Computed example of a mutant assay.
Amino acid sequence: MRLLLLDLDDTLLQDLPVSRRVLEELGRELGLLGFFRAVKEEAEALFKESPIYSWAKRIGHSALEALWARYSTFGLERAAEWAWPFREEVFRRALRRLGGPEEKARALAQAFFEARRVFPLFPEVPEFFRRTEGVPRALLTNGVPDLQREKLQGAGLWEAFDLFLISGEVGLGKPEPGVFRMALAAFQVRPEEAWMLGDNPEKDILGANRVGIHAVWVDRKERPPHPEARPDRVVLSLLEAL
């Protein structure tokens, strides 16, 4: 192995579990069960009507992330203007669906925006980095530049990589073959000399398959298999991949 390619969200950094925990805690404070599911589903439905949806889909930016992204990157002023009315409406719809107080929608949107800014790594990540020291590492992550960079800063991962490829910066998102080829070209490595580790069968595994890169599915039990993805290995933690 001459190059290690890694995904960020839910491979190294606990992302979806944190959103679930924060939203369920906010719901419990109001006596509402199933708040995470209600917010997620309402966000995904309304997100499809947004003026940034086609761009977000291209770079792999999700509806849940739209609830807490700052959109402070130059050129995203339109998204920043759109975001708060979107968030308030998402929470209003979720509250209506569960029989909660709709007048609290704005306050809940703000509470989630603030409380969501925590960045825990999976427990095995420090040991994984220690044991792969000396192997060049590239991060391939989908998302909005300012949000992904905030995650990297908050999780203390800036020193862990030799190259960062953020879809919102390079204009390509996984599973597009081009973003994988960018990493290979940067290190002058052939596909068969590289390994991709990620939790998303479609984005990480299928993308690597299309380029001929070895692929390890880190199954965090958050995503189902993809019918076309062919992982070389399936593991439950990063250390198992070693």
Rank of each mutant, 00 (worst) to 15 (best):
A215P: 04
R220H: 09
E88F: 06
G143L: 00
I213V: 15
E228G: 08
R190P: 01
P17K: 11
L206K: 08
L157G: 00
F36K: 05
G60S: 12
M196A: 01
V170W: 05
L95N: 04
K203Y: 07
F91H: 11
R70C: 13
D10W: 10
R20G: 04
G171N: 08
G173K: 02
W55A: 11
R21D: 13
S62Y: 03
I205H: 03
S72F: 05
R2F: 04
M1R: 03
E65F: 11
A111P: 00
E88T: 14
L121V: 12
V125Q: 01
L33N: 14
Q153K: 14
A155Y: 06
Y53H: 15
Q188K: 14
L152K: 01
I59C: 01
E44A: 13
L46D: 07
F161G: 02
F161Q: 00
Q153N: 10
N142L: 06
K104Y: 10
L163Q: 06
L46Y: 08
P101L: 08
G31Y: 10
S50L: 08
P191V: 05
L165C: 11
A43T: 05
L139H: 03
L184N: 00
A38D: 04
L108C: 05
R116D: 10
L64W: 09
R87N: 09
F74A: 15
K221P: 03
R58K: 15
Y71V: 06
E202W: 12
G34I: 10
E65H: 14
I52H: 12
E193W: 06
G99C: 02
N200K: 02
F122H: 12
R93K: 14
Q188T: 12
E25W: 09
W158V: 01
L157Y: 00
R210M: 11
R233Q: 14
E228N: 09
Q188G: 13
L152S: 03
G34T: 11
D204N: 04
R223L: 13
W217G: 03
W82R: 11
E150K: 08
F35A: 10
I52L: 15
T141V: 09
E88A: 13
M196F: 02
I205V: 15
